[in-house]
Design a protein around this nucleic acid. Structure first.
Lengths: 273, 273
DNA sequence: CGATGTATTGAATACAGTCAATAAATGTGG
DNA sequence: CCACATTTATTGACTGTATTCAATACATCG
């Protein structure tokens, strides 16, 4: 915890906060993260950060504001795949694909950091702990999408809606954007509908039910969750999928040893090759 | 294409085939893959490869047979997140999580290769091209789940079903498991229902409609797709999301240069740091 | 202060679910 | 190899959740 006094203490960004919930970052890692987020771009609400079919470019880190990742059918029907919140990364593996199969559109004015995808590779080589944390965050995103799939496939409208609210609460908590159970929800009911696979009208009715039951309150873009436990219960919320636990011991162990040799230790004891 | 005569020519596995659709593997990479798949385990149909809540163990490669990745609600409702086909990897990033948020259950007798997750790290360090190919395959899985989310959210029962059949056809084609438009579909209608967020009864009726329209034929576990184009059209199938194109040029370029320096080249020209 | 986008509610409709009964297929033990 | 049991598939009738259509209220913004 000793901090070199000469060192420029880097700003605490949402990404920093999020990764810190997974493992304790070292100063050099914080510095590298800080450097990654150096190139900052601002964009207004309801503009595209990425368009379906477009060639991928930079990797981006959401620093402030909300966006949605969504896919559309030729006839205009649309599905919101996920919400992009502060601390989330856009197009981490973009180098691997030729073109995007989804769009990303801002819901609010946003502040994003941009860097070339080559830096991800660099990071995997030079900062394996950071790389693991980023990979964790990426894999967790997949888990979130899978959980939403469970919602759309098997939860009722009420359950889905309750579930989404709890999910957002949890995710925003990690980056300090929840205060006393309330947070800003900068979405129209149309967007909620597209996220939950429902019609606008039905989302409206469902929110009404949640409000009438006293579980939530809505004032403009401010949502207050009065009873998280009960809301989570309505949504059949399973804490497991957000993987909000620190890096497993075996991972820490892997990083504690010699950096070059870390692939060998566990392996050899289990099998001979 | 010259092959060292002394070299043990490795078996062509589904994973090998799949990755080859993305980039042309070098002999040393083939050898490494072959070594990864050395430890082979067989398991009968309808047994678990992984259970929700369980601690993660080995990484597995499906060599033969089918499985499903699925999540369940406390009351028993179930959602199949994805089908695990030959060449697919189970739990690639498993080290990063404490416990599994989903189960994996075999549909047929399967043959899987097991290896400790540390080898993924090893591979990222020693075989970056292979690592990229694996990361591609992982990111593609996410894309498949996202596309299924679009299905459940915004496609009708008929569209969903048609879409899934085309998806399976495409994925199985990559690993040479489709012949003349027909392939083995080792699933009950209950599993299809759980994959598509429908009831068993409704899947049955939907399949009937597809058969009556002559688009597909079903004989036991053998399905024949008579008109892929039309079926794809019914399912609003978008070729984009499977990312069935070779590694983008910038990736190849990155690998062609000096291994240690490859993070720098593109980066510097765009910005100064 | 109109204009557009968003929210809300009622009424009619539809797609998909549930219940139920039967048929077909698959598996098991004698 | 057959008889029985179980799982899976199929179809009809009825129900219900969510959609669509429509009208109105409310909000936000230039």
């Amino acid at each position: 915890m000793t901090r070199a006094s000469a060192r420029n203490v880097p700003e605490v960004t949402p990404l920093w906060l999020k990764l810190s919930s997974y493992l304790i970052l070292k100063d050099e890692e914080k510095d590298y993260l800080s450097d990654l987020e150096k190139n900052i771009v601002r964009q207004t609400a309801r503009t595209d950060l990425l368009q379906q079919g477009e060639k991928y470019r930079d990797v981006r880190v959401m620093r402030e504001g909300w966006a949605i990742r969504h896919k559309a059918l030729p006839d205009g029907r649309r599905q919101v795949v996920n919400f992009v919140l502060p601390g989330d990364i856009i197009g981490m593996y973009s180098t691997l694909f030729e073109s995007a199969d989804h769009s990303v559109t801002t819901l609010t004015a946003v502040e994003v950091a941009c860097f070339p995808p080559e830096r991800i590779v660099e990071l995997f080589q030079s900062f394996p702990r950071l790389a693991a944390a980023l990979a964790w965050s990426g894999a967790r995103e997949e888990a979130i999408v899978a959980e939403r799939l469970l919602s759309l496939g098997r939860r009722t409208a009420l359950e889905r809606t309750a579930h989404l609210i709890v999910e957002l609460l949890r995710r925003l908590s990690t980056v300090n954007l929840v205060e006393n159970g309330h947070f800003t929800l900068p979405v129209t009911q149309e967007i909620l509908a597209d996220a939950l696979g429902l019609s606008i009208v039905h989302i409206n009715r469902t929110l009404r039910r949640l409000r009438d039951s006293g579980l939530i309150e809505l004032n403009g873009q401010r949502i207050t969750v009065n009873d998280v436990r009960q809301l989570a219960s309505v949504g059949q919320f399973d804490e497991l999928y957000l993987h909000l636990i620190r890096a497993p011991k075996r991972l820490e162990r892997a990083f504690s040893g010699d950096r070059r040799a870390r692939s060998g230790d566990d392996k050899v004891e289990g099998r001979k090759m």
